[in-house]
């Protein structure tokens, strides 16, 4: 047995979170049901946030929890529920595709692992090294001022920060917000298929009404199909 006093608890928690992250990532690939995939993805990304906390990147970890897990994935699950009609909850993949993906994935993993183990300095960390919390310097860097040790070697003692990328990302997010709202708006265009559907229905019903009925029906239908499963 290992003496308990010799255990590095940081490593123990690392392996806990790493196993959760990797296991759930593999489960995302293996799962057939799309809602379960979403659950495993949440667990995987949450465990990764734990890894970020362990690596001293508290702000990135909290950001991961807030934006990725709390925002993006809720959005994703929302999308899953809007489209979760019985035939789409679990779309089967052909066994050949699975084998092919397994082979390619294994090859890719081998390459990545080989490069991960290739640098000996990466494998032997210094024990008990302490880093300072980085939230305040990171915030100042995003506002354009670097106050961390990286600025020491730069000319003038100060390196420029990330003000411009920060602003670009802000505008980018705004544009994406508007664009996504425009793309996903409820109005339905007259595609050939929609016209065909409308023509096959009773004459007074408009296409828009059909769209509304179709959406309601899809939600109800998914529930009923879930009940029949």
């Amino acid at each position: 047995m290992i003496p308990l006093a010799a255990i590095d608890w940081h490593s123990v928690f690392f392996f806990l979170f790493a196993a959760l992250a990797c296991g759930c990532a593999v489960a995302v690939v293996a799962a057939e049901n799309v809602v379960r995939m979403a659950l495993y993805l949440v667990l995987s990304l949450g465990a990764t946030a734990g890894l970020f906390f362990l690596a001293g990147a508290e702000f990135v970890g909290a950001m991961q929890l807030m934006i990725y897990v709390g925002g993006t994935l809720v959005l994703l699950v929302f999308g899953v529920m809007l489209t979760a009609q019985a035939p789409f909850v679990s779309i089967k993949t052909a066994p050949g595709d699975r084998v092919l993906a397994g082979v390619i994935g294994a090859a890719l993993l081998a390459v990545l692992l080989q490069s991960a183990f290739s640098v000996p300095e990466w494998r032997k960390p210094a024990a008990g090294r302490d880093g300072e919390p980085a939230a305040t310097p990171l915030g100042m860097a995003l506002l354009g001022t670097r106050v961390d040790e990286a600025s020491a070697g730069a000319p003038g003692g100060v390196r420029s920060g990330y003000l411009l990328p920060f602003e670009i990302v802000s505008v980018h997010l705004l544009v994406v917000l508007v664009g996504a709202a425009y793309l996903a708006r409820a109005k339905r265009r007259r595609t050939p298929r929609a016209i065909e559907v409308a023509a096959s229905m009773e004459p007074p019903a408009t296409v828009a009404a059909h769209a509304a009925v179709g959406r309601e029906g899809s939600r109800g239908g998914s529930v009923l199909a879930g009940g029949a499963r």
Partner: peptide, 21 residues
């Protein structure tokens, strides 16, 4: 935590997952 406020708000937002599931 150095980012305490942020952490609390972020984790509180995860509660919605239980409800959705």
């Amino acid at each position: 935590l150095n980012v305490g406020v942020f952490f609390v708000v972020a984790v509180l937002g995860l509660e919605v997952f239980g409800v959705i599931l």
